[in-house]
């Protein structure tokens, strides 16, 4: 009887602290919030056809990781562009693509969507720079690059 009581007491001593530490989901925890957000990249080449582009994206503020790259809306850039695999799990990426076909987009077109993992409640800021854009002949053209956030493409 005495030993049984001892065993029960020892069990309580071990179990109570362990159960007290369980982070049940219904209770608020100290874990930072993690969310995923797409960033849509657009290039406006005006009336000129867009045959090639290269841009660099850098995210600032908070903990941000690039977790995926999606292609653009036009068939010529439907496949994800070239990028360094080391950019995944990083906050900086250089993406480039070209197409030698005749059917090329012009005007404002979505050229890529970058998926980000954002840790914390800080709203990130983005630095986006168009390195080069070219027409169907490979001649550099002036173009404007912009981005949009949100699920809508």
């Amino acid at each position: 009887m005495k030993k049984t009581a001892l065993i029960i007491a020892a069990s309580m001593c071990v179990m109570v602290p362990v159960l007290a530490r369980q982070p049940y989901p219904e209770y608020p925890t100290a874990q930072p919030k993690v969310r995923f957000a797409p960033l849509h990249i657009y290039v406006d080449s005006g009336e000129r056809a867009l045959g090639a582009f290269q841009f660099e994206l850098k995210a600032f503020g908070g903990q941000i990781k690039i977790v995926g790259v999606e292609g653009g809306e036009h068939a010529a850039f439907k496949e994800p562009g070239y990028y360094d695999p080391a950019a995944l799990a990083n906050d900086r990426i250089i993406i480039a693509a070209f197409n030698t076909a005749n059917e090329l987009p012009s005007g404002r077109t979505r050229i890529a969507t970058i998926h980000l993992q954002i840790t914390g409640r800080v709203e990130p800021e983005y630095g986006l720079e168009l390195t080069v854009a070219a027409d169907a002949d490979g001649q550099e053209i002036p173009a404007e690059i912009t981005f949009e956030t949100g699920e809508q493409k």
Binding site: R21, P23, Y24, F36, V67, G68, V69, L88, H115, Q117
Partner: peptide
């Protein structure tokens, strides 16, 4: 107790794994 501790402690691997299906 050890099993409970390991089961509930820390974020799961799957939660923090990046989604790479677009690449």
């Amino acid at each position: 107790a050890v099993v409970l501790e390991t089961q509930f402690s820390g974020p799961s691997e799957q939660e923090s794994k990046p989604d790479q299906h677009f690449s």
